[in-house]
Amino acid sequence: GLTEEQKQEIREAFDLFDTDGSGTIDAKELKVAMRALGFEPKKEEIKKMISEIDKDGSGTIDFEEFLTMMTA
């Protein structure tokens, strides 16, 4: 499992990506986040990433899903 410290770091990354503070990361926010990390993702790639992570089919990534992605 994760230490509380690791969870906190992932939470901070999540909050950075969640620019509108909605508690979820949408495609637009993910794209901005990827760019910040030096990637140039295409729209299809973003969609694919979200569909792989987005277990509940909401079209957005919540913290639990993000946590799973970061620790996979």
Score class of each variant (00 low, 15 high):
Glu64Lys: 06
Ser22Lys: 06
Asp56Glu: 07
Gly57His: 10
Asp56Cys: 10
Asp54Glu: 09
Glu9Leu: 14
Glu64Tyr: 10
Ile50His: 02
Glu12Thr: 14
Ile46Trp: 11
Gly57Ser: 04
Thr68Asp: 05
Ala72Ser: 10
Gln6Ser: 06
Gly1Asn: 08
Glu5Pro: 05
Ser58Glu: 05
Leu37Ala: 05
Pro41Ser: 09
Phe39Cys: 13
Gly1Lys: 10
Ala36Leu: 14
Ile10Val: 05
Glu45Met: 13
Ser58Asn: 12
Met34Glu: 01
Ser22Gly: 03
Gln8Asn: 09
Asp26Val: 02
Phe17Cys: 11
Ala33Arg: 04
Lys55Glu: 05
Ser51Thr: 08
Thr24Tyr: 12
Leu30Val: 07
Ser51Glu: 13
Glu12Lys: 15
Ile50Glu: 03
Gly23Asn: 03
Ala27Cys: 10
Leu37Trp: 05
Glu44Ala: 08
Leu30Pro: 00
Ala33Val: 14
Thr68His: 12
Ala36Met: 14
Glu29Lys: 12
Glu29Pro: 00
Ile10Ser: 02
Glu64His: 08
Pro41Gly: 14
Arg35Val: 06
Asp26Ile: 02
Leu37Phe: 06
Glu64Met: 07
Pro41Ile: 15
Lys48Arg: 11
Asp54Asn: 09
Ala27Met: 12
Glu44Gly: 13
Gln6Pro: 01
Gly57Ala: 07
Glu65Asp: 08
Phe63Cys: 01
Asp20Arg: 05
Glu52Thr: 09
Met34Asp: 00
Phe66Cys: 01
Asp18Leu: 04
Phe66Glu: 00
Asp62Asn: 14
Met70Ser: 01
Glu9Asn: 13
Glu52Gly: 08
Lys48Ser: 07
Phe66Val: 03
Asp26Cys: 11
Lys55Tyr: 05
Phe39Pro: 01
Ala27Thr: 11
Ile25Tyr: 01
Asp62Met: 06
Ser58Cys: 07
Thr71Met: 12
Lys7Ala: 08
Glu64Leu: 10
Leu16Gly: 03
Leu16Ser: 05
Asp62His: 08
Glu52Met: 14
Glu4Ala: 12
Ala27Arg: 08
Ile61Lys: 01
Ile50Lys: 01
Ile46Ser: 02
Thr19Leu: 09
Ile61Leu: 07
Gly1Pro: 08
Phe66Asn: 00
Glu65Arg: 14
Ile53Arg: 05
Ser51Trp: 09
Leu37Arg: 04
Asp20Gly: 04
Arg11Tyr: 03
Arg35Cys: 13
Lys31His: 13
Ile61Gln: 00
Lys47Trp: 09
Glu4Met: 09
Gly23Trp: 03
Gln8Thr: 08
Ala27Glu: 08
Thr24Asp: 08
Glu5Phe: 12
Ala72Gly: 07
Lys43Met: 15
Val32Asn: 15
Lys42Thr: 15
Asp15Lys: 13
Lys43Ile: 14
Leu2Arg: 04
Glu5Ile: 12
Ala13Leu: 15
Asp18Ala: 05
Thr60Gln: 10
Lys31Asp: 13
Met34Tyr: 05
Ile61Asp: 00
Ser22Trp: 03
Met69Gly: 02
Asp56Gly: 06
Lys31Phe: 15
Thr24Lys: 07
Asp54Lys: 12
Asp26Leu: 09
Gly1Phe: 12
Leu30Asp: 00
Met49Tyr: 06
Ile25Val: 03
Lys42Leu: 13
Thr71Ala: 13
Gln8Met: 11
Glu29Ser: 12
Pro41Tyr: 15
Ser58Arg: 08
Ile25Ser: 00
Ala72Lys: 13
Ser51Val: 04
Met49Phe: 07
Phe66Pro: 00
Met49Pro: 02
Lys55Ile: 09
Met70Leu: 12
Leu67Phe: 07
Ser51Ala: 13
Phe66Thr: 00
Met34His: 01
Phe14Arg: 00
Met69Gln: 02
Leu30Lys: 00
Leu30Trp: 06
Gly59Phe: 08
Glu64Trp: 13
Val32Tyr: 15
Asp15Glu: 07
Ile53Asn: 07
Gly38His: 03
Ser58Asp: 12
Leu30Ile: 09
Met70Glu: 00
Thr24Val: 06
Met34Asn: 00
Glu29Asp: 14
Met70Val: 13
Thr19Met: 10
Gly21Asp: 05
Phe14Lys: 00
Phe14Met: 01
Phe39Leu: 08
Lys42Trp: 09
Arg11Leu: 03
Lys42Glu: 14
Ala13Asp: 01
Gly59Ser: 07
Lys7Arg: 11
Gly23Met: 03
Gly23Tyr: 02
Glu5Ser: 09
Gln8Glu: 05
Gly21Ser: 05
Gln6Glu: 08
Lys43Ser: 14
Gly59Met: 08
Asp26Ser: 11
Leu67Gly: 00
Lys43Asn: 15
Phe39Asn: 02
Phe17Ala: 15
Pro41Asn: 07
Thr24His: 07
Lys43Arg: 07
Leu37Gln: 02
Lys7Thr: 08
Ala72Gln: 10
Leu16Ile: 07
Glu29Arg: 09
Lys42Gly: 13
Gly59Ala: 06
Ala13Thr: 13
Lys28Thr: 07
Ile46Thr: 04
Thr19Asp: 04
Gly57Cys: 12
Glu45Phe: 14
Asp15Ser: 11
Ala13Arg: 05
Leu2Trp: 11
Lys55Val: 09
Phe63Tyr: 05
Ile50Val: 07
Ile53Gln: 04
Thr71Ser: 10
Leu67Cys: 04
Glu64Ile: 09
Met69Arg: 04
Leu30Thr: 01
Gly1Met: 10
Gln8Ala: 10
Leu30Glu: 00
Lys43Cys: 15
Glu5Val: 09
Lys48Asn: 07
Ile25Ala: 00
Met34Gln: 01
Thr60Tyr: 07
Glu52Leu: 14
Ser51Arg: 06
Thr24Leu: 05
Met70Ile: 10
Leu16His: 05
Thr19Lys: 11
Lys47Asp: 15
Ser22Pro: 01
Gly59Ile: 06
Ile10Arg: 02
Phe63Arg: 01
Thr68Tyr: 12
Leu16Thr: 06
Lys31Tyr: 15
Phe66Ile: 03
Asp18Pro: 01
Gly57Lys: 06
Glu9Pro: 04
Arg11Trp: 06
Asp54Met: 12
Met69Ser: 02
Ile53Asp: 03
Lys48Thr: 06
Thr3Pro: 03
Phe14Glu: 00
Pro41Met: 15
Gly38Phe: 02
Ala33Asn: 01
Lys42Met: 10
Lys48Pro: 03
Lys42Ser: 15
Ser22Thr: 08
Glu64Val: 06
Ala13Pro: 00
Val32Lys: 15
Glu9Phe: 14
Lys55Trp: 10
Ile61Val: 05
Glu44Cys: 14
Leu2Gln: 03
Asp20Asn: 09
Gly57Pro: 05
Thr71Gln: 10
Glu64Phe: 10
Thr19Arg: 12
Ser22Ala: 04
Asp15Gln: 13
Arg35Asn: 05
Glu65Phe: 10
Lys31Ser: 13
Met69Asp: 00
Gly1Arg: 12
Lys48Trp: 07
Lys7His: 08
Leu37Glu: 01
Met69Lys: 02
Glu40Phe: 13
Arg35Ser: 07
Glu5Leu: 09
Glu52Ala: 12
Arg35Met: 09
Ile10Thr: 03
Ile25Phe: 02
Met69His: 04
Glu52His: 12
Lys55Ala: 06
Lys47Cys: 14
Asp20Trp: 05
Gly21Val: 02
Leu30Phe: 08
Thr71Lys: 09
Asp54Gln: 06
Lys55Gly: 06
Asp62Ile: 04
Ala72Leu: 15
Lys28Glu: 13
Ile53Lys: 04
Phe39Gln: 03
Arg11Asn: 01
Ile10Phe: 12
Ala36Tyr: 14
Thr24Trp: 11
Ile50Phe: 13
Lys55Asn: 08
Ala33His: 02
Thr60Leu: 08
Ala36Asp: 02
Leu67Val: 07
Lys31Leu: 15
Thr19His: 12
Gln6Ile: 07
Ile53Trp: 15
Glu12Tyr: 13
Ser51Ile: 06
Arg35Phe: 05
Glu4Cys: 13
Lys7Pro: 02
Lys28Gly: 08
Lys31Glu: 15
Ile46Met: 06
Ile10Asp: 00
Asp54Thr: 12
Lys7Glu: 05
Arg35Pro: 00
Gly38Leu: 02
